[in-house]
Amino acid sequence: MTLLRLLAGRLRPHRARLVLLVLLQLVQSLASLALPALNAGVIDEGVLRGDTGRVLSGGAAMAAVTLLQAAAAAAVTCTAARIALSVARDLRSEVFRRIQDLSVLERGRFGTASLITRATNDVQQVQTFAVLALTMLVAAPLLCVGGLAAALRQDVPLALVLLLFVPVMTLAVGTVVLRMRPLFRGMQEHLDGVTRVLREQITGVRVVRAFVRDGHERARFAGANTA
């Protein structure tokens, strides 16, 4: 939720691209949902009846829909990447300006390594999440609604099974996400440690070599890297 709130304000300048993205996702979802119906038509009306013409026309329709789906998926990925890169650029600039406004005492409290991680790795994590949100999270509701409609049109009693599986899957995914949060937080702290050790070693490389402490520093970095 924090990431969603963070992205919400920074996606407003990209409204036109977001509208285009949703339209492309709609085309991709409709094409995905149309393929099973077209395949069933080819089998029921063409293969089972021995109608070669129906098989060829149905196959051509499936090929056209597949090409349309592939083109929409490529356009979605490209549009989402452009939006995410723009958001990351703006966020990185905001973080950099904020760091420049910090006092010496505040910079010392946060630590240089931690501030470097915030301006680089953390922004990249937000960028990656933005790509996933714009590609997967936008398509999921469209596919869910379309899939339920298609299932209900085919067989209402059988489609009711989805009412059981959807809550179970939601619970399972939610449990995994909740267990990932502390692990992800710990990983970010260890990244700070790696950056701090590496920065200290680069800054003091002459002293390290002068006192022949290469082995000790390799061990320090190996410990931080392994953690």
Rank of each mutant, 00 (worst) to 15 (best):
R54S: 04
L132G: 04
L11A: 05
V138S: 02
A133Y: 11
G223L: 02
P141L: 08
E189I: 08
F129Q: 13
G58S: 11
I99F: 09
L67R: 05
L137T: 06
G223S: 04
R10C: 06
R196Y: 01
A71C: 13
H190G: 00
L162Q: 07
G174A: 14
A63E: 03
T117E: 04
D51M: 08
F184Q: 15
L48E: 09
A84L: 06
F221E: 04
T2F: 11
R185Y: 12
A81Y: 14
A74G: 14
R89C: 08
S103E: 01
R153C: 03
F165A: 14
L67K: 07
M62N: 01
G9H: 05
Q69H: 14
P167I: 11
G9I: 07
A80M: 12
I99L: 08
R98E: 13
D51E: 10
G215R: 13
A224V: 12
M1D: 04
L134C: 01
I202M: 08
P141S: 05
G108E: 06
V156D: 00
A80H: 03
D122Y: 08
A130N: 02
A31S: 10
V138A: 03
G108M: 09
G59Y: 01
A34F: 04
V156G: 02
R181S: 10
V166F: 12
R185Q: 15
Q201T: 10
V138H: 01
L105S: 08
T170H: 07
P157Y: 09
A81P: 09
A113E: 01
R196A: 14
T170P: 00
L48C: 00
L163Q: 08
A73R: 10
A34Y: 02
I202C: 01
I83Y: 09
L163A: 15
G193T: 12
C144V: 15
L163Y: 11
M62G: 08
V95I: 05
V22I: 11
F129P: 01
R10G: 03
P141F: 06
G204D: 12
E200H: 10
G147Q: 03
V212T: 13
